[in-house]
């Protein structure tokens, strides 16, 4: 029906069945990704952002399980596919970059070995052609002298260079969706800037949609078109970068904005406003809104019942009872939005 939607998640629920009980890591995620867009998922540790991406990749292992929901990628439901069918899609149509480039590359094989393995798994081409393709990709991500460097082992590269190799490998089969899970978290700021610039540059060059997962609002601000804010396994708010940064409509998003110091403000007089309390235990999550125990505006209903997602505009939605027509008006956004000219 909608041709420009590449990926759609419909009420995806993923749980891990441990000895201590069921950990409900993702509790009903729904979002859409347009072709060519960059979608950012932001959240703290334990918010379910990584599990969401692993669910899309079909990489949820025992004792984990996608309980319910649909993951529609290009008209096919990934959640219903067998591992065999998925392995034709993984690395080919959907590729992933992980946080730590050292542990995701195999230290005993050369880069050539690892890159051509991916290419030849999905394309019927000769080793020679595969090497050529790999060299081309390394060149694209800015590795100097790719013909020579392709014979190196991972330990011969620095952290930033390794991450470039990971990106080159991920892009080597021309995927239609690239998932980057905290791609710059393990890197220094100056290297992070290099990688972000590379991703911005690639966004124009390659014909793929990107899902970027991070805890850093700064990284999100850099390249994302659409942003999903997750907390306690649920999506609390989603919208365009304008919606989320200049018109946040969920107390958690507002709290996040307020708790990071703004480097652009020259005086340090303003005190940070932290979010009190700690994130919920997903073993037995709150009955109501996951943020309600920490929310400064929590009402009775917030503790009892999960808020539905209120559609605020075509792009912007937020799950918060304060948006219900009977809710009291509270001044919750006065600080976060005032950076707009």
């Amino acid at each position: 029906m909608n041709d420009d939607i590449l990926l759609e998640l419909k009420d995806v629920r993923t749980s891990f069945y441990t000895h201590h009980g069921e950990v409900q890591a993702v509790r009903g995620s729904s979002f859409k990704l347009k072709k060519g867009d960059v979608l950012g998922i932001v959240g703290e540790s334990g918010s379910g952002k990584s599990v969401t991406s692993l669910s899309i990749m079909g990489l949820i292992d025992e004792p984990g399980k996608i309980k319910s929901g649909e993951i529609i990628f290009d008209g096919k439901n990934l959640a219903k596919m067998s591992q065999r069918e998925l392995s034709d899609i993984r690395g080919n149509e959907i590729a992933m970059i992980f946080q730590d480039p050292m542990t995701s590359l195999n230290p005993v094989y050369t880069i050539k070995n690892q890159m051509t393995e991916v290419i030849r798994r999905h394309q019927k081409i000769s080793q020679k052609k595969a090497v050529k393709q790999a060299v081309k990709m390394l060149d694209l991500v800015g590795i100097p002298e790719p013909e020579k460097r392709i014979n190196s082992f991972p330990h011969e590269f620095s952290g930033g260079m390794r991450q470039r190799v990971m990106i080159a490998t991920a892009l080597s089969c021309n995927p239609r969706l690239l998932i980057a899970d905290e791609p710059t978290t393990a890197l220094d700021v100056t290297i992070q800037a290099q990688i972000l610039e590379l991703m911005n540059d690639l966004k124009e060059k390659i014909d793929a949609s990107i899902i970027l997962i991070t805890h850093d609002l700064g990284v999100i601000a850099e390249i994302c078109d659409h942003i999903v804010v997750m907390y306690g396994g649920k999506i609390l708010e989603q919208g365009t970068e304008k919606d989320i940064f200049y018109n946040p409509q969920n107390p958690y998003t507002v709290g996040l904005h307020k708790s990071v110091p703004k480097i652009t403000e020259l005086e340090n007089e303003e005190r940070l406003i932290p979010i009190e309390g700690t994130p919920p235990d997903l073993m037995n999550p709150p009955v109501g809104c996951p943020f309600s125990p920490r929310c400064p505006h929590a009402m009775e209903i917030c503790l009892k019942e999960q808020p539905p997602s209120f559609q605020l505009s075509e792009t912007h939605s937020s799950a918060c009872w304060l948006l219900h027509k009977d809710a009291p008006q509270v001044e919750k956004y006065e600080k976060a939005g005032d950076d707009v000219e």
Binding site: A193, E241, F245, K262, I263
Partner: peptide
Amino acid sequence: KALLSAIPIPDPDITRKNKRVILQGSV
């Protein structure tokens, strides 16, 4: 200067206009 300009600012309007000093290579 390079270190400061490398910080991603959580404000899309500022950060996308920001002209970066991108350092080449690593330490």
